[in-house]
């Protein structure tokens, strides 16, 4: 049996204050390769905290997080950063495209910090853009794209480094229904290619398309059918 992509065991995250705020309490989660998982919950439920921990942007207060079989809680900062760059592709609600760089340059940014060769980088970026149906916009500035197009560029950037996990934080939060539909179709296609996708959302329409749904509330996870 292959190693799970994500394996959370007894993960807690407390924020120091008086009294301490427990954003996640004793969370267990297992995501297998090829899973398409939605984490749903109202704001303040601990969604962002979970995303930050899954994305190696934050450390759990206790518990274990194995990403692709690597125990991450004991890694130092540099190793976590390298693991993050190599294994996780981020898709943000607000896209996070650099406004002064062209579409293809934004996508190429994904390979700047890894051990990737410079040779052929542009070609790979163009290929990733083709994958999301944006091959015709490579030379555009992000400011000239629609929201849906921007998010597709951001997804191309996330795909560029060939991650084990696509981590999406409210990927359709800034999009209208038509663009949302297009992005969700794209996710379906990516999943069909075997990519593991984890979407954090508060929209039921988005979570309905996922294969698995996990509800988070008050720091607790409950699997839904």
């Amino acid at each position: 049996m292959p190693e799970p992509v994500i394996e959370l065991t007894g993960v807690c995250r407390e924020f120091p204050s008086d009294p301490p705020v427990r954003a996640l309490s004793d969370v267990d989660l297992r995501v297998e390769p090829g899973d398409y998982l939605a984490i749903v919950g109202p704001s303040g439920s601990g969604k962002s905290t979970l995303l930050n921990i899954l994305g190696l942007l934050d450390r759990p207060s206790s518990g274990s997080y194995r990403l692709d079989g690597v125990e991450t809680t004991e890694l130092r900062d540099g190793a976590r950063t390298r693991l993050r760059g190599a294994r996780i592709g981020f898709v943000f609600q607000s896209f996070h495209l650099l406004p002064h760089r062209t579409v293809v340059e934004n996508v190429m940014l994904a390979e700047v910090y890894g051990p990737h060769p410079r040779r052929g980088r542009r070609a790979r970026a163009e290929q990733a853009l083709e994958q999301v149906g944006m091959g015709h916009r490579t030379g555009f500035a992000p400011g000239r794209l629609s929201g849906g197009e921007r998010q597709r560029v951001a997804i191309a950037r996330a795909l560029m480094a060939r991650p084990a996990l696509l981590l999406c934080d409210e990927p359709t939060g800034n999009l209208d229904s038509r663009n949302t539909e297009a992005i969700l179709d794209l996710f379906d296609g990516l999943r069909a290619q075997g990519l593991t996708i984890l979407v954090i959302t508060h929209e039921d329409g988005v979570s309905a398309r996922a294969g698995r749904r996990v509800r988070i509330g008050d720091g607790l996870l409950t699997e839904q059918g």
């Binding site: 994305g55 942007l57 900062d77 540099g78 950063t81 390298r82 993050r84 760059g85 190599a86 996780i88 981020f90 943000f92 607000s94 996070h96 650099l98 940014l109 994904a110 700047v112 910090y113 890894g114 950037r157 480094a161």
Partner: peptide, 16 residues
């Protein structure tokens, strides 16, 4: 700041 966050998410270390 957002760009810095993005770069960190893309695997940039503090020294980068």
């Amino acid at each position: 700041v957002a760009e810095i966050g993005l770069r960190r998410a893309l695997g940039a270390g503090r020294r980068h």
